[in-house]
Amino acid sequence: MSRALPKYNKRRVGLIGGAAAVALSGAVIAGSALAGESSEDSAANARTFAGPGTISCPDVAPRLPAVPASAQAEVDRNLADLDTQINEANKRLVDTVGQGGPNFVQNAILGPLKDKRVAAINRIATAIGRTAERPAGLDALAPCTLTK
């Protein structure tokens, strides 16, 4: 027959388990913080990472046909969105330097950026196409590259 632990024993087990988790977390954080430190005597052993590079994307605005006045605000908003997307991708590139495997930048940054750019470029083409001929071939401007 199994016995239930009295309430105070359950609390003690929970408290001890929680305290152990906090202590272990602190040890891991302290250990990882100390692992990157180097003294002046061991400056030769200090690691430095190469710069992450920058994201380069084709400029969409020069490739657009004449934009009808009725579509100008929407086109401008989406062109600004394209610039914001590049800036965010460059920030993510800096923030994630050294993470992931060999395809990390392609899979986590460039691929999603291309998808966002395709959507914005399609919105631009749709806005123009409402009152003028829809521009063709703009999707070729969606892929970006990493330059070092």
Rank of each mutant, 00 (worst) to 15 (best):
P6T: 15
F104W: 06
S2V: 14
N107Q: 02
R3T: 15
A69F: 01
V22F: 05
A19N: 03
S38I: 12
L79D: 01
A108V: 05
R12F: 12
P65Q: 01
F49I: 07
S25I: 14
A69V: 11
S56W: 12
D41Q: 07
P65I: 05
L15S: 14
A19G: 06
Q99M: 13
P6E: 13
A27E: 13
V60W: 10
V28I: 13
V75E: 07
D83A: 09
T96K: 00
L34N: 11
I16Y: 06
G14E: 11
A27C: 12
I29L: 11
S42K: 13
Q85A: 00
A33Q: 12
R63P: 00
L93Y: 01
P58C: 06
Q99A: 14
A71W: 09
G36M: 06
R63A: 15
V22H: 06
F49M: 09
P102I: 12
N45D: 13
L15V: 14
T84E: 10
G100P: 02
A35Y: 02
L34W: 15
Q99N: 14
L15H: 09
L34R: 08
A33C: 13
K91N: 06
L34G: 11
V67R: 02
D76W: 09
L93D: 04
Q85S: 03
L64S: 01
K91V: 05
N103G: 02
Y8P: 07
G53I: 02
T48E: 01
A50V: 12
R3D: 15
V13L: 13
A61L: 01
V28R: 01
V105E: 03
G18Y: 08
A19D: 09
L82S: 08
Q106A: 10
Y8D: 13
P65Y: 03
L82E: 03
D83E: 07
R12D: 07
A89S: 04
T48N: 05
Q106E: 02
R47P: 10
L110I: 02
R77E: 07
P58S: 07
A43I: 10
P6R: 11
A73S: 11
G101C: 04
T84G: 00
A44K: 06
K91H: 09
P6F: 15
R11M: 15
G51Q: 02
D95C: 10
G14P: 02
S38N: 14
L79K: 04
A44V: 01
S42F: 02
E88W: 12
P102M: 12
G36K: 09
Q106G: 00
V97C: 08
